[in-house]
């Protein structure tokens, strides 16, 4: 340590890498902890469970990375997921008599989910980018609207997918390719495409410049409104995609579906190293953040070493620690 800090350049390199690797180190520490507490932790079944259940928040969090990088925020994604799930289930139930149970029905349901998600994202985007209302207020309002619309659609109860349609659709969550479950594959593809979009495309650069300084971005001929709107539409579409993976799992939606998903997604983004006030985003970091959050839950359930009353507290401590590890380098600069 002292040797490296003596000279300027290597110290900087060390700090940068440490900062980048913070979340990864936290993830590795959690994996080691989990494996030492329970021998089943690294079993195929458990790893599949954890990755598959991370997929919903993960797919949403990739979209959230773009929104936050662009200096925005979206609090409505959890309610939106519940609403999209509700609309999708009702649409599929209504289409069973005309389409029958089969691939067309599932594809129609998927199309409905994607369109509903994109439309909801577009609405958020229009209000924020075109009408110029604060993202926090628009999406806070949308959060309440979608949550109560879902309760209304379900008449206060639960919307359940037609039993036969459900049995047919079920493999979308539970089966997969070469032993890797579909939600994991979709999550991985979304994450890789997201990483490429963030790093290699003009869209990613425009998001970052928009979040860093809107005026400068505007003078640099970035179509600010369009980029901002695109981030919300992208997120809406990914909420639709996450819902497509979510519905086959339990085949139902209710007012309590997706509660607090928005905060988990935002937390994952920040743990992963994206800056909350915008200007810098890291998609692979978000993926690590999502995995950290799901692993904490999983380890607490597998270990049951502490009172379950304290689960929330332990989660909180680990989340803060992961970010502290990562920011140490920055505050020393």
């Amino acid at each position: 340590m002292t040797d490296t800090t003596a000279t300027g350049a290597p110290a900087r390199r060390f700090r940068v890498s440490f900062q980048t690797l913070g979340p990864v180190l936290a993830l590795i520490a959690l994996i080691v902890l989990g494996a030492s507490l329970n021998s089943n932790f690294l079993s195929y079944g458990n790893v599949t469970n954890v990755l598959a259940r991370s997929a919903f928040i993960g797919i949403i969090a990739v979209g959230m990375t773009f929104v936050i990088t662009g200096g925005g925020i979206d609090l409505s994604v959890g309610s939106m997921a519940a609403f999209v799930a509700g609309v999708m289930i009702m649409a599929m139930n209504a289409l069973v008599p005309s389409l029958g149970v089969g691939v067309p029905l599932v594809l129609a349901g998927m199309a409905v989910a994607m369109l509903t998600g994109l439309a909801a994202g577009l609405l958020n985007g229009l209000l924020i980018a075109k009408a110029g209302i604060e993202a926090f207020i628009v999406t806070l309002g949308a959060m309440g609207i979608y949550r109560s619309l879902t309760t209304w659609l379900a008449d206060g109860g639960t919307l359940s997918l037609d039993f036969d349609a459900r049995s047919f659709y079920r493999p979308v969550y539970y089966d997969g390719l070469f032993g890797i479950a579909w939600p994991i594959i979709v999550f991985a593809v979304v994450a890789i495409l997201g990483e490429i979009a963030m790093r290699k495309t003009p869209f990613g650069r425009h998001c970052a410049s928009l979040g860093a300084n809107e005026q400068v971005a505007r003078y640099s001929a970035v179509k600010v409104d369009l980029v901002r709107m695109a981030t919300y539409v992208l997120l809406g579409g990914l909420v639709g995609l996450a819902t497509i993976m979510y519905v086959p799992r339990l085949g139902s939606a209710s007012g309590s579906t997706g509660v607090l998903w928005e905060l988990e997604a935002i937390a994952a983004v920040i743990i992963g190293g994206t800056v909350l006030k915008g200007g810098f985003g890291r998609v692979w970091g978000t993926v690590v953040g999502v995995l950290i959050l799901s692993l904490i839950d999983n380890i607490l359930n597998l270990a049951s070493i502490v009172s379950p009353y304290l689960n929330g507290a332990i989660q909180g401590v680990i989340v803060i620690l992961a970010v502290v590890l990562q920011r140490q380098g920055k505050s020393a600069d």
């Binding site: 329970n38 089943n40 469970n49 259940r53 209710s254 509660v259 597998l302």
Partner: peptide, 16 residues
Amino acid sequence: WNRDDAFNVMQDFLSK
């Protein structure tokens, strides 16, 4: 009292 939470907890019980 939530379906999704119960699903996750039960998956972990079954692994354990």
